[in-house]
Amino acid sequence: MATNTVKGPASYFPSIEAKYGRPIAEWKDLIRRQDGKKHMELVAWLKQEHGLGHGHAKALVADTVRK
Rank of each mutant, 00 (worst) to 15 (best):
A25G: 08
W45N: 00
A2S: 15
L30N: 10
P9C: 14
G53C: 04
K38V: 09
A44T: 08
V61L: 01
K37R: 14
D35A: 11
V65A: 05
G55W: 14
P23I: 03
Q48E: 09
I31D: 05
R33E: 11
G21M: 11
W45A: 00
G51V: 01
K37C: 07
E17R: 13
A44N: 10
S15G: 13
K19D: 15
W27F: 09
A57Y: 00
G21W: 13
T5I: 11
L60Y: 01
D35I: 02
K47Q: 03
A62K: 13
G36K: 06
G55D: 12
L30R: 14
K67M: 11
V6H: 11
R22V: 04
K19W: 08
R32C: 07
A44F: 04
K67V: 10
S15F: 09
E49M: 07
V43N: 02
W27D: 01
E41Q: 11
P14T: 05
G51Y: 05
Y20F: 13
T5G: 10
G36F: 07
G36Q: 09
N4S: 15
W45V: 00
S11F: 10
K58Y: 04
E26C: 09
K38S: 07
H39E: 10
H56T: 01
S11P: 07
P23F: 08
R33Q: 13
Q48T: 00
G53H: 03
K47W: 02
T3E: 15
L46F: 02
G55Q: 12
V6S: 08
M1E: 09
R33D: 12
K58D: 04
G8H: 14
E26I: 15
A10F: 06
Q48S: 01
W27Y: 05
A25V: 09
W27P: 02
M40A: 03
T64Y: 01
K38Y: 05
I31Q: 06
S11W: 11
M40V: 08
K19N: 15
I16D: 02
L30F: 11
E17I: 06
G8N: 12
E26L: 15
D63F: 14
K67Q: 11
Q48P: 03
L30E: 06
R66I: 10
Y12K: 13
T64V: 02
P23S: 07
K7W: 13
A57P: 00
D29Q: 15
A2E: 13
G21T: 06
H39C: 04
A44K: 04
H50T: 01
W27I: 02
M1K: 12
V43G: 00
K7N: 10
G53F: 00
T5F: 15
K7S: 13
L30T: 09
R66K: 12
T3P: 05
K38R: 08
R32T: 10
D29G: 13
H50S: 03
K7Q: 13
R33G: 08
R33T: 12
H39F: 11
A62I: 03
F13E: 09
V43T: 02
A59R: 00
K7M: 12
I31A: 04
G36R: 05
Q48W: 04
H50F: 06
K67N: 11
L42C: 02
A18G: 14
R66P: 00
K19E: 13
K38P: 04
H54A: 08
R32P: 08
L46A: 04
L46R: 01
